[in-house]
Amino acid sequence: MKRLRGLFLLALLVVVLPILFPDNYYVTVVAVSAALHAILAVGLNLLMGYAGLISLGHAAFFGVGAYTSAIITTRFDLNPWLAMAAGILLTGCIAFIMARPILRLKGHYLAMATLGLGMIVQIVLVQAEGLTGGPDGLGGIPPLSLFGWEVDSDLRWYMVMSTVMLLVVWLALNLIDSRSGRALRALHGSEVAAEMMGIDTTATKTGVFVIAAISASLAGSLFAHQQAFISPDSFSFFFSIELVTMVVLGGMASTFGAVFGAFVLTFLPELLVVFEDYEVMIFGAILMLMMIFLPQGLFVGLQGLLRRLLQQRAPARLPAPAEEDKHGAA
């Protein structure tokens, strides 16, 4: 099972952490948001990292999922799981309809279009007060329960969120290592050549856009039930940017890179809190410096470094693996 070695390692970490550090704020609170962010980043990475389609509006799908769950459970008193499914269905439909015109665009134009989509959704969340509660948000969202097991403590949320994260990572790893996954990567490498190999590039792009969107919607529903209160601030342009940064920070086209990026970017602000007023400035500086000096991402960069060190020690029998993303145009 060489394929899934990384997944087992991650699962081990998930199990060991709360045993080693029970009741630790960073484990039961921060790590839960990190796992949530990891779900989002892994989905976005399929779109951005593998298929090479940038999205600056991913928070929109996260928001639609969260608000669908919140509205259905608070206003209509329906089962949270049903609400979650409804959110996924709605987000999937929106993504499916928007995919065709949006994904014809490339580069900065695609960036702008997805940004615009994100802005529109956020404005609607703020303005449609009757439905969403407007800028004040929506409260009283019930917690999830699984066969009578209420997910109502930090530790239980830790279990649920990290299980879903592991599941999403597993799905993503399977997907990438398959016919469809190769089609995605081929699309990134050369769209014409991919078409010539018989890949319906329009359908493939639509498919990955929908998958990224529904994974964001799933994360949104979990977020709504976990927080019990949501407001449009959580689904702003800045959050979209943060998600993109997680993907790039970890290293594009690496599922574990996306998980890593999500954890780094969730813990970083927690650690920067000690700098108080300097926090924003330091965060911006770190972002800039990281992208300037490690454009291939922290995770992938470190991986490469490790590999080189190992090779120096034991002369390789195989030819040296090529630098990841050497030709990687965006």
């Binding site: 190769r182 990567r185 081929a186 990134h188 490498g189 050369s190 014409v192 050549a193 991919a194 010539m196 086209a253 993303d325 050497k326 030709h327 990687g328």
Partner: peptide
């Protein structure tokens, strides 16, 4: 002009 998938 080569249209390889250089990322693979």
């Amino acid at each position: 002009n080569l249209q390889m998938f250089f990322n693979m």
